[in-house]
Nucleic acid binder design. Structure first.
Lengths: 131, 131
DNA sequence: GGACATTGAATGCATGCGCATGTAACTTCG
DNA sequence: CGAAGTTACATGCGCATGCATTCAATGTCC
């Protein structure tokens, strides 16, 4: 009936769930309190900083994140409203929108990143993952 | 500036996020499609089945799950609406509510569990966690 | 060129979540 | 007993998400 392999997998899943819940909750709260942005917003900024060009199309950005297209659209809208990113047309394909970091966005990301790393360091062990 | 330990932790976080997103999305979809319940509902049923008495107070149930008290209240309400659990008063403490599995709930859990294990087995490796 | 499919992004809608609050039932202590 | 504080659960509200749809711009095929 109950394959021991199944039990092991269920155990892994519970650990994963526990770890994710704890960390994401702490991270979201810390980012929100200290910088006024949520996890999704931070992730988006992070992807933009990673990109060498710091200018990416919505579609490409969506591909890097675990977010639906509509959720990304709204996340970028929030970031734009906060002045952290700008949207600009793409001459090659006028359906596409380029998302670009503003200076404020770069600064916000830099300080938020310190918060992120502090929270992660507190909750995650680099070597010997327990999850 | 950039502590290599930090980078390792960030890498672990990205892996965790990737794994969680993939699995939870697949699981939620599979449970919803095949059994008409979401992940939270399944987790709640699962906790009730685990319990020897199959009757737990809301508060205790909430402690086992990564859900706020209000979210659990609504989750149980959905389960009740679907006829999978019942709520009953607790004579000892009339503030408390006992949540009990119905026969339908037991059956639904049994079949949903097979789905869950199939999905987890597909996405998670029991030994040598890659996350 | 013109009809039809496809793609990139925005948006209406339904849903689930957390926070803050409300209400009823306990508990404590004078 | 009775007032004040605490606990258990429900609910109003705002927010973020996903799905389905929409709209404009491209691409394709004849």
């Amino acid at each position: 009936m109950s394959d021991p392999g199944d039990d092991a997998v269920v155990g892994r899943w519970r650990d994963l769930l526990a770890c994710y819940s704890t960390v994401s909750c702490a991270l979201d709260r810390a980012l929100q309190d200290a910088h006024g942005i949520g996890m999704s917003e931070f992730e988006a900024l992070d992807r933009l900083v990673d990109a060498t060009c710091e200018q990416r199309r919505m579609h490409d950005l969506a591909g890097d994140m675990y977010l639906s297209q509509s959720a990304l659209s709204r996340t970028v809208a929030r970031l734009e409203r906060a002045g952290l990113v700008g949207r600009s047309m793409c001459a090659d394909d006028r359906r596409a929108i380029f998302v670009t970091l503003t200076d404020a966005g770069r600064e916000r990301h830099a300080s938020a990143r310190r918060t992120q790393r502090a929270v992660l360091a507190e909750h995650l062990v680099p070597e010997r993952a327990e999850v």
